[in-house]
């Protein structure tokens, strides 16, 4: 199982702060496309992604046990 965390605008648009994927492995770009389609939320394309709290790229692959976080453009400070 892969855990997916959502924050800020994504959390509100999807209506959940956490999703679970049954896959053993998934490529980040494939997951982005799937979530855009499934939830009709274009903002997924504009997000950075972290795997296990480290920034990751679209070509990286998350595996079972990993935590993926979608990071919309940040606005701290």
């Amino acid at each position: 199982m892969i855990k997916v965390l959502l924050f800020a605008t994504l959390q509100e648009k999807v209506g959940a702060s956490e999703l679970s994927l049954e896959e053993n492995a998934i490529k980040i770009s494939d997951l982005k496309n799937r979530l855009i389609e499934e939830y009709d939320v274009q903002e997924f394309s504009n997000c950075l992604v972290a795997i296990n709290e480290e920034y990751a790229g679209d070509n990286d692959i998350a595996e079972s046990g990993d935590t993926i976080a979608f990071i919309p453009p940040v606005s701290g400070g």
Binding site: A8, E43, A50, P72, P73, V74
Partner: peptide
């Protein structure tokens, strides 16, 4: 901090609210 730290602010105005940073073109 404004570039890399995963923190988000939501502005609440009299006539609405918005997570800052979700304007696709600007950020």
């Amino acid at each position: 901090i404004k570039e890399i730290v995963p923190i988000w602010k939501k502005e609440h105005w009299e006539n609405g609210e918005m997570w800052i940073g979700d304007q696709l073109e600007q950020h």
